[in-house]
Amino acid sequence: MRFLGIVAAVFVANLITLAFIALAFAMLISDQGQAFMRHLGYDISPLVSAYHQTQIKEWNDPRVRRMTSIDITPSPQEPAPVQPKPASKTTDNKPDRHAIQTTLNTCRFWNNEYRKDGTDRSKGFRDAACNRYERLSGSDVNRVISLATAPQRQTTSQQSNTRQSQQANNDDRQHEAYCKRLQEKIDYYDAKLRSGGDGSYMTYWRGERRKVSNKYSWECLRK
């Protein structure tokens, strides 16, 4: 192992030495190197000229040219395949979903109005909005919303019954308020009797309470 190490070290040292020699020779035969040698008093121009002639002879040798020639003729390239252009996207002619929803809401609104008033004006607006919704969506409007018929007018007897019912409700509210006032008077006389006082006042309050209590019992509790 030590012998191989020594051999490897010697080999590397020789390579480094050869590299330095080649570098020094290249610098020496350059124009700057020749000028430096002439400055020292040595003319190496004949040596450099002989070296260049030797290089030219070696380059003109057919054997060297066959070894060093490289065919750099480019190989013919196949034409790149033409890719078809992507088809342009066609504009979708489908209606806007927002417009469909808006017409549906309008159809429902005027349908509700026609249910309430039954006028020809509401019916015309309802039919126009619902027909437009049917054209935009392609759906049968009868499946989405039930179109109302005009509300039926109340007969004379129905109107009379309605008025009587309203009058009865008003009478009940008034009677309830009247009984409430009687109850408040009874509570007032009870408070006076509990507080005590002169005998004549106590007799008066008992009499008044008896009157109000009888009226409350007869008009409110027996109704």
Rank of each mutant, 00 (worst) to 15 (best):
R2Y: 03
F3R: 14
F3A: 11
L4V: 10
F11K: 10
V12W: 04
N14V: 15
N14T: 13
L15Q: 07
L15E: 07
A19I: 12
F20T: 13
A22H: 06
L23T: 14
A24G: 08
A26W: 05
S30I: 05
M37E: 05
M37S: 10
M37C: 06
Y42I: 15
D43T: 06
D43Q: 00
I44E: 02
I44P: 00
S45I: 03
L47E: 02
S49C: 04
A50E: 09
Y51M: 06
Y51A: 11
H52T: 02
Q53K: 11
Q53L: 11
T54Y: 11
Q55L: 15
P62G: 03
R63N: 13
R66N: 10
S69A: 15
D71K: 03
I72A: 00
P76C: 09
E78P: 01
P79F: 03
A80E: 10
V82G: 05
V82N: 02
Q83L: 14
P84N: 03
P84L: 06
S88N: 10
K89Y: 08
K89V: 15
D92R: 00
N93Y: 02
K94S: 14
K94W: 01
K94V: 09
P95N: 01
R97D: 12
R97A: 08
H98Y: 04
H98P: 00
H98T: 15
A99G: 03
N105A: 15
R108H: 01
F109C: 01
Y114S: 05
K116H: 11
D117C: 02
G118D: 08
S122W: 00
S122L: 00
K123N: 02
R126H: 07
C130S: 00
C130Q: 00
N131S: 12
N131E: 13
N131A: 14
N131Y: 09
Y133T: 07
L136R: 01
G138K: 04
D140G: 07
V141W: 01
R143T: 14
V144H: 05
V144R: 09
V144Y: 08
S146Y: 08
L147C: 03
A148W: 01
T149M: 09
T149C: 06
R153F: 02
R153Q: 10
Q158A: 08
S160P: 04
R163H: 12
R163Q: 14
R163G: 13
Q167F: 04
Q167A: 15
N169S: 14
D171W: 01
D172T: 08
R173I: 09
E176Q: 13
K180T: 11
K180W: 08
L182D: 00
E184K: 11
K185Q: 08
Y189C: 05
K192Y: 06
K192Q: 14
L193D: 03
S195A: 15
G196T: 06
Y201P: 07
M202Q: 15
G207T: 13
G207D: 13
V212Y: 03
Y216M: 05
S217I: 09
C220Y: 02
C220D: 01
L221G: 04
R222E: 12
K223L: 12
